[in-house]
C-alpha cells in the first residue's frame, strides 16, 4: 500500500490535475499550485544532488580508494562555495536594508561566491566544453568515411554547411548575382535551402515521432499502466 498504491495514486492525481487544468478553467489554480510544488521539489533535487555528491566522495575518502585526494578537493571546494553562498559571506549589502546581512547580494563578482563563479567555475565550465572542438576534429579525421550513398549525403551536406557558414561560401560563389537564374548555385542559397527545407523536414518528422511517444508514455503513466518507476524499490 505505502510502497505501491499511494505513489501510483499520487502520480495519477497530479497528472490528471495538470491535464484537467488545461481544459477546465476553474481547475487552473489547482494546476498552478501543483506546479509550484513541482518547482520546489526541483529545487530540493539540487540539495539531493549535493547530498549525494558528499556521500559518494566521503565514502571514497574513508575507504581510501585510488584518487581519494581528488574527492577531498571536490569536497573542500564544494564546502567553501556552499558556506560562502548560504551564509552570504562577504555579500554586497542591500541598499535599503544594509543592517540585514542575509538580504545582501551574494553573487556579484565583489563577493566571494560571485568571484568563485566568475574566475573559477565559469572558465572551467567553458573550457571543458571547448575541449570538444579538438575531439570533433579528431573524430572527423578518423570516423567520417564516405563508404556509401548515405554517408556521402551526410558528408556533402556537412561540407556545404561548413563552407557556407563562413566567408568561404561568399568567396567561392558570391560572384553569382542574387537575381540571376543561377542564384540557386550560391552556397548560401544551398545552405539556406538545406536548413529551411530538408533539415526542417527531417527534424519535423523526428519531432512528430517523439511527440507521439511522449503522449503515449504520459498516458500510460497517468493511467497507471506503466509502473516501471516503482521497480527499484
Amino acid at each position: 500500500m505505502l510502497q505501491r498504491t499511494i505513489p501510483i495514486a499520487i502520480l495519477c492525481l497530479s497528472g490528471a490535475i495538470m491535464v484537467g487544468a488545461y481544459f477546465i478553467s476553474s481547475a487552473q489554480s489547482w494546476g498552478e499550485t501543483v506546479t509550484t510544488w513541482f518547482n520546489i521539489l526541483a529545487a530540493v533535487a539540487f540539495v539531493l544532488g549535493a547530498g549525494n555528491l558528499i556521500a559518494m566522495n566521503l565514502e571514497k575518502i574513508s575507504s581510501q580508494r585510488p584518487g581519494w585526494g581528488y574527492a577531498a578537493i571536490t569536497l573542500v571546494s564544494f564546502a567553501f562555495m556552499l558556506v560562502v553562498g548560504l551564509l552570504k559571506l562577504g555579500a554586497v549589502p542591500n541598499d535599503k536594508h544594509p543592517d540585514i546581512h542575509l538580504a545582501g547580494s551574494y553573487d556579484t563578482p565583489a563577493s566571494p561566491f560571485g568571484w568563485m563563479y566568475e574566475y573559477v567555475m565559469s572558465p572551467l565550465t567553458a573550457t571543458m566544453f571547448a575541449l570538444l572542438a579538438f575531439y570533433v576534429a579528431s573524430a572527423a579525421f578518423r570516423a567520417f568515411r564516405a563508404k556509401n550513398t548515405e554517408s556521402i549525403l551526410l558528408l556533402g551536406t556537412a561540407f556545404i554547411v561548413l563552407l557556407a557558414q563562413t566567408a568561404a561560401g561568399m568567396f567561392l560563389t558570391g560572384w553569382i548575382p542574387e537575381d540571376s537564374a543561377f542564384a540557386f548555385l550560391r552556397l548560401d542559397k544551398i545552405k539556406a535551402g538545406i536548413i529551411e527545407h530538408v533539415q526542417t523536414a527531417g527534424m519535423r518528422a523526428i519531432m512528430i515521432g517523439i511527440a507521439l511517444g511522449i503522449a503515449a508514455m504520459s498516458l500510460r503513466l497517468i493511467l497507471g499502466i506503466d509502473r516501471s518507476y516503482l521497480s527499484k524499490n
Binding site: 572527423a140 567520417f144 557558414q165
Partner: peptide, 23 residues
C-alpha cells in the same frame, strides 16, 4: 568569433578529406 571559423572549418574539411584518402 567568425574570424577563426573560416580557418577551422577549412581544416575540418581537410581532415575529413585526408581521413578518407588515408582509408
Amino acid at each position: 568569433r567568425m574570424g577563426p571559423q573560416l580557418v577551422a572549418h577549412l581544416l575540418m574539411i581537410a581532415l575529413i578529406v585526408l581521413g578518407n584518402i588515408a582509408m
